[in-house]
Simulated assay, not measured.
Amino acid sequence: MISVIQRLQRLGFELPNAPAPGGNYQAYLLSSKQLFISGQLPIVNGVPRYQGRLGQELSLHEGYQAAQLSALNILSQVNQAIGFDSLKTIIKVEGFINATDDFNQHAKVLDGASDLFSKVLQHKAGHIRSVIGCSSLPLNVAVEISVIAECI
């Protein structure tokens, strides 16, 4: 059986180290059989990537890539918190998109995360989601994504 790490590698990704919280909060919280993951940014080794607003400094494609990077950080948090073998399913994905007032492709940006979850987690990736446009986000990044997951 192919592992989550192997699927990531086949797609050309590497599981990053789980980012530390940027403030006075926890990166994740396990409550009964639910795992709540705080908003994850497109950060690599503490350095923010994809800074700017969709529809202004950043393209739809760059937004999609930013969502993928945030999703990789979510996967790192899942792995650190419970390990992939204990993940039953992703329940909900919430995406916040830093965009101009006239940008209207928020859902396509968040597809970067949903598509990655689907390819890597397969049957464990089914989720509902919400996507919200914002006038700004921390560190001027393009996206912030949080997740609720169910554990075995």
Rank of each mutant, 00 (worst) to 15 (best):
A67R: 04
E144F: 00
A27Y: 10
I148M: 03
S136H: 14
L41R: 05
I132F: 13
T100P: 15
L35Q: 06
I132P: 00
L35G: 07
H127A: 10
Y64W: 14
A81R: 11
V44I: 15
N45A: 13
Q65P: 02
L29P: 00
R49E: 12
A142L: 07
K92D: 11
V78W: 05
V147E: 03
D111G: 01
V120D: 07
L69E: 08
I128F: 03
N140Y: 07
S70T: 13
K108D: 15
I82T: 09
N140P: 03
F117K: 03
R129G: 09
S59H: 01
L15M: 15
F84G: 14
Q77T: 14
G63E: 09
N98I: 08
P138W: 01
R10T: 09
S135T: 15
V120M: 10
N45G: 05
L60D: 04
L121K: 13
F36D: 11
I97S: 06
L54D: 12
F103P: 13
I82C: 09
L137S: 03
D85V: 07
Y50A: 03
V93D: 01
Y28E: 00
P42Y: 01
I43D: 02
Y64L: 07
G52Y: 06
L60K: 11
G23E: 12
N140L: 02
R129A: 03
L35S: 04
G63W: 04
I90Y: 02
S86I: 00
N98G: 12
